[in-house]
Amino acid sequence: MLTGFHVAVIGGDARQIEIIRRLHEWDAHVYLAGFDQLNGSFTECIDLDFDGPQVQQLDAIILPIAGTDDHGGVDGIFTNRTINLRIEWLKKTPKHCQIYSGIANKVLQNMAKEADRELIPLMDRDDVAIYNSIPTVEGTIMMAIQHTDFTIHGSNVIILGLGRVGMSLARTFDQLGANVTVGVRTSGGVARVHEMGLKAMDMRQMDIYDMNCDYLLNTVPAPVVDASVIKKLPQHALILDLASKPGGTDFRYSEKRGIKAILVPGLPGIVAPKTAGKIVANVICKQLQEINRKADE
């Protein structure tokens, strides 16, 4: 339970709705910013007054999975305005106040550091990322089916990256009957792909490989699907880029070549926001209970 805890939820998508519900189930005091289009759906919540005394009570601040933009702005699908985080505001929170974000860019990291508040990037945690890979894979399958006129079974699939999402993708597409090749950068990665019974491709030498695939799935948040890769893809190939914005694909060149390329970060929030919200909420609850436990020691 989070009885007596004060938590601010700022911006975000449908995942935040489930987080808000969970916080209420655990008896926390919840303050909202960036949810003005919900039309009073959460009457028990309080609108967050950034200049009021509420700020001095906050035990936690929950930001969207996407975190902030490069100017410290927080967006959400339930409002038309961007909320700008300010260091002066963060400094008014209690010293123990934790900041939760899915990912944390340099701007957010610097703000938390200057305000001397603990920043917890949830997607850096193995438990969150692995649980999150389940709706990510389901969403990828949905997108693959929607945007092609052939089956996954029997298709040639190239997956770039063997991280927590890449591994789940590789296993699932293999089980669906696809011919899976996984791009990796280390000898350990090659060994893991071999152990999985799949084909490995050295991403450091992609220019020597045949890129004759039906699906190219990228999980690497770096420019890896560049013009040299795209020019070798067949015309019917579909690129699904699952990396965080701006992705790792040269979308301009793929459009020039007439190859469909779609940036689809945040799939869990699109295909299964309830499940994805529960995953994040459970982790946050455990973290906040840890604060309470340490305070009692």
Score class of each variant (00 low, 15 high):
Pro268Gln: 09
Leu263Lys: 05
Lys256Thr: 14
Leu90Lys: 10
Val283Leu: 08
Ile120Met: 03
Ile158Lys: 07
Ala191Thr: 06
Val224Arg: 03
Ile17Pro: 00
Val225Ile: 08
Gly12Leu: 05
Met1Tyr: 10
Lys95Ile: 14
Leu63Gln: 08
Thr172Asn: 12
Ser244Lys: 05
Asp51Glu: 15
Ala222Pro: 00
Val229Ala: 07
Gln289Phe: 07
Val283His: 13
Glu138Gln: 04
Leu90Gln: 13
Pro234Leu: 02
Leu267Cys: 14
Arg86Tyr: 14
Leu32Asn: 03
Asp174Gly: 11
Ala104Leu: 01
Val137Ser: 08
Gly40Ala: 07
Pro53Met: 13
Leu58Tyr: 10
Asp51His: 13
Arg81Thr: 15
Ile20Ser: 01
Gly188Tyr: 02
Ala272Ser: 15
Gly67Thr: 03
Gly139Val: 06
Met201Thr: 00
Thr151Lys: 04
Arg293Val: 14
Tyr253Lys: 07
Phe251Pro: 01
His6Ala: 13
Ile270Lys: 13
Ser133Asn: 12
Gly247Ala: 12
Asn84Leu: 15
Pro64Leu: 08
Arg22Ala: 05
Gln109Glu: 15
Gln146Asn: 15
Gly277Ser: 11
Ser133His: 07
Ile262Asn: 11
Ala178Tyr: 00
Pro53Cys: 13
Met211Gln: 11
Thr186Gln: 05
Thr219Lys: 04
Ile259Cys: 11
Gly73Tyr: 02
Phe173Asp: 01
Asp75Trp: 07
Glu138Lys: 06
Ile262Gly: 11
Arg117Ser: 01
Pro273Cys: 09
Lys106Ile: 14
Lys260Asn: 14
His6Ser: 09
Thr249Glu: 11
Asp250Gln: 07
Thr79Met: 13
Thr3Pro: 01
Tyr209Trp: 10
Asp49Trp: 03
Arg192Asn: 12
Tyr209Ile: 02
Asp47Pro: 14
His6Met: 09
Gly177Phe: 10
Leu63Asp: 00
Ile284Lys: 04
Asn105Ala: 10
Lys274Leu: 04
Pro273Ile: 04
Ser254Arg: 08
Val74Leu: 05
Ala60Pro: 06
Asp75Arg: 15
Lys91Glu: 15
Arg192Gln: 08
Met201Leu: 11
Ile208His: 13
Ser168His: 04
Leu58Phe: 12
Thr140Trp: 02
Gly102Pro: 02
Ile83Tyr: 15
Glu290Val: 01
Tyr100Leu: 04
His24Gln: 09
Leu108Tyr: 10
Gly183Ser: 05
Lys294Thr: 12
Met211Trp: 08
Gly277Lys: 05
Leu85Pro: 07
Leu58Thr: 03
Pro246Ile: 04
Arg257Cys: 14
His24Gly: 01
Leu233Phe: 06
Thr82Glu: 14
Gly248Phe: 02
Cys213Lys: 03
Ile291Asn: 14
